[in-house]
Write a protein that binds this DNA or RNA. Sequence first.
DNA 1: CCGGAGGTTCGATGAAGTTCGTACCTCGCT
DNA 2: AGCGAGGTACGAACTTCATCGAACCTCCGG
Lengths: 113, 113
Amino acid sequence: MSSMPGELPIPEMADVDLGTVLSALADPHRRAVVLELVDGDGAERACSSFPLPIAKSTRTHHWRVLREAGLVRQRDAGNGTFVRLRREEFDARFPGLLDVVAGISTAGSAPAR
Amino acid sequence: MSSMPGELPIPEMADVDLGTVLSALADPHRRAVVLELVDGDGAERACSSFPLPIAKSTRTHHWRVLREAGLVRQRDAGNGTFVRLRREEFDARFPGLLDVVAGISTAGSAPAR
DNA sequence: CCGGAGGTTCGATGAAGTTCGTACCTCGCT
DNA sequence: AGCGAGGTACGAACTTCATCGAACCTCCGG
């Protein structure tokens, strides 16, 4: 568990369970967020920048689920919090999963070409 | 919905939702079953041939979940029921998903070499 | 024809999960 | 100093889910 200044605790990637990950990705709100992060290509984003139609406390809940599923890293900076995908780590542990889910979710949105 | 003799009703693959699929795969028992079917390479299997440590009625429940998630086709033959992966259909709708999940689940079980 | 194996249906139950509102905190800005 | 935006913590309400046992059904084999 890292304890950097402002960094919220996250599980070791080795301890992350596939079932937990799939549960986390099963929720439409959470999947939407992960999708945007995948598209964002590793960039950090303000938590407040996601247009989720849910209450503040519910958001906090979803961020925790994503954190505990090993998908994101969350940083507490002054008056805002920021998230970043744990891209490389996650891919090393669950090779291909993010790409496949992102690919499926993206398909149908835009004509593949 | 197919209504062949003994064939239990299944959703059209186009109607299957990714969230539903991920939820179905999140459960360890169901994922174990799907894994065996993937390894089985399209072969039909007796439902009773899976060594699940749960009650009969709970099994029935899990088969329904897998069916409704579009993952399996289930046939009622005399005194037993049989399942088959909807491999090709499913892969066309969710490309790579089964392979990735199967690959991840298999990794770590046996020393990769 | 009867027994048992395999399955389904029907509640019930207890554990999780999603959602919200309220209270509260901490910054940054005026 | 005071306000507001962004967040967390907590508890409540509600829903969903996994699980089970009991009752019942349908075949196949002796």
